[in-house]
């Protein structure tokens, strides 16, 4: 079953095309990675899905429902969660407050507290629950935001470079977290640079280049793809 679909999605800023007729399909249960050189349009594609940018043309369908004109918050309520590249957390508020704000739309009272406890455990932040989020290490901040994104069991989780700035250990642990979430039925779409991480998590990979889909396939397909290596000079096969 298709969870997310874009049809001929177009967007340009002052003549620069960040999305050229993108036809993209994401199946339920996938762990899909978006890769591509800098400026390929990965982040813009996310922003279009989230409604932060309005497309110039084309459609976005979530669970077969047209959400092209829905406002951002309405898309989130339909079951899309997001973790930004720069940790999108409330730094002045405590870890516990961050999670409360993330979940209170869906949960109340006991269920809320139980979920917070479960998520704190899942992202290994139970010991620092009362600390201000801004005082956490960079990796912990990333995990907090993943926790905020998944506590309400979204149908689709969007991750923009979830491991940026993490140590190899933290990166690996993040990969395990994502596998666990995927096993619980959450479909994952991630923008990622670290090819080792892509290999660890992705079931399918899409390569964007100049705002268009350049190639699509399994991780090994993509690594073997001659053209991908060419456009990706320098950003190549990590590890």
């Amino acid at each position: 079953m298709t969870i997310l679909k874009t049809e001929k999605l177009k967007k340009s800023f002052g003549g620069v095309h960040v999305a050229r007729d993108i036809d993209f399909t994401l199946e339920k249960g996938e762990m899909h990675c978006l890769i591509g050189p800098n400026g390929a349009g990965k982040s813009s594609f996310f922003r279009l899905i989230l409604g932060e940018h309005r497309p110039d043309g084309g459609k976005i369908l979530f669970m077969d429902e047209d959400i092209t004109d829905a406002r951002s918050f309405a898309r989130i309520r339909k079951g899309i969660s997001v973790k930004f590249q720069v940790p999108g957390i409330f730094k002045a508020l405590s870890v516990h407050q961050n999670l409360t704000i993330a979940f209170q739309n869906h949960l109340h009272g006991h269920d809320l507290e139980a979920t917070i406890a479960r998520v704190l455990d899942f992202v290994s932040l139970a010991d620092v629950a009362t600390e201000p989020a801004g005082a956490l290490s960079h990796g912990q901040q990333q995990w907090l935001e993943i926790g905020m994104a998944v506590g309400v069991e979204p149908k689709l989780l969007l991750l923009d470079e979830p491991t940026a700035g993490m140590s190899p250990d933290e990166t690996h642990k993040t990969g395990e977290m994502l596998h666990e979430l995927n096993a619980q039925g959450i479909t994952i779409l991630a923008v990622e640079h670290d090819m080792a991480f892509v290999e660890q998590i992705a079931s399918r990979v899409t390569v964007l280049h100049f705002g268009a889909i350049f190639a699509q396939g399994t991780v090994s397909d993509i690594i073997a793809h001659q053209g991908v290596a060419e456009i990706y000079l320098g950003g190549g096969h990590g590890g």
């Binding site: 918050f73 989130i76 999108g88 957390i89 409330f90 730094k91 508020l93 704000i101 993330a102």
Partner: peptide, 17 residues
Amino acid sequence: NVLVAIRENPERAEMLG
């Protein structure tokens, strides 16, 4: 809670629904 979240980071608050 939501008011404070909006004060701290309005974009993020919107992206929490």
